[in-house]
């Protein structure tokens, strides 16, 4: 995957800032004011964000994606069983052949996510553009999504958090996981793991757009979904497992 295919996405930000300000002071209290601003772009169901991870370009030593994820989301990087890990490198060895692979594993952003099905309050949800998120305002910390997720993609925040990224709120008592860097994607940037990879092993794009670099690549090389047998239709695909 060359750099050329990996160009940042067209920004939505430019579209957002106009209009609303001028009307702001005239409208009735509170809610209406926001509805004016609501005219701006939102996550579109026409898009489905996805990732292709080429594990043939991954080495066990390289943790660039993990480090970038921790830095971006202000995770401590500690790896005790109670620490959050949104993205991890899983070292695989074929039991029969001994072939190895070093695989970055994060939320697979399923089309039919088990975590969303089981969440009693609807805090686990899938955005129109396919990104699976936790609404921490509704999360009661029951951890049923962690029981249901086939990928161990979720972490529970076991203690107080103080140094959050202002764009990535996280706190004690809620479940969290990879959000595909939704705050960056919404600004037209790439997920930080994709950007940080020194070997261009990750390709981010729109699975619904047949002309996206991602879709084109998926058409030409063999890829797999992890636990495809479960039929969850993951948004993250792997090459080389």
């Amino acid at each position: 995957m060359s750099d050329k295919e990996q160009k940042p996405l067209p920004g939505r930000r430019a579209l957002l800032s106009g209009g609303a300000a001028a009307l702001g002071l005239l409208v009735a209290p509170g809610i209406r004011l926001i509805e004016v601003a609501g005219a701006s772009t939102t996550a579109s169901p026409k898009v489905r964000w996805g990732l292709l991870v080429d594990t043939t370009r991954c080495t066990p030593e390289c943790k660039a994606c993990v480090n970038a994820c921790n830095a971006e989301n202000h995770l401590s990087g500690a790896t005790a069983p109670t620490d959050s890990q949104w993205l991890r490198k899983v070292e695989l060895k074929d039991k029969r052949t001994g072939r190895t692979a070093s695989v970055p594993v994060m939320c697979q952003h399923c089309a039919k996510p088990a975590c969303v099905d089981v969440c009693p309050t609807g805090a686990s949800f899938k955005r129109a553009d396919g990104i699976v998120l936790v609404d921490r305002h509704a999360c009661i910390g029951c951890r049923y999504c962690m029981m249901a997720c086939p990928y161990k993609a979720r972490s529970f925040v076991h203690a107080e958090v103080h140094d959050q990224n202002p764009e990535v709120p996280r706190g004690k008592g809620c479940v969290e996981g990879c959000n595909l860097c939704v705050h960056r994607v919404d600004k037209g940037q790439l997920p930080t793991c994709v950007e940080a990879c020194p070997n261009q092993a990750m390709l981010f794009g729109d699975l619904n757009d047949p002309n996206s670099a991602l879709s084109q690549r998926l058409r030409t090389i063999a890829t797999t979904q992890v636990r495809a047998d479960l039929g969850l239709d993951t948004g993250v695909r792997y090459h080389g497992i």
């Binding site: 930000r13 939102t42 955005r127 919404d186």
Partner: peptide
């Protein structure tokens, strides 16, 4: 709710 659930960014509030 707008920002988180619908992905609306750059709102006034």
């Amino acid at each position: 709710d707008k920002t988180l659930r619908e992905g609306e960014r750059g709102a006034k509030v």
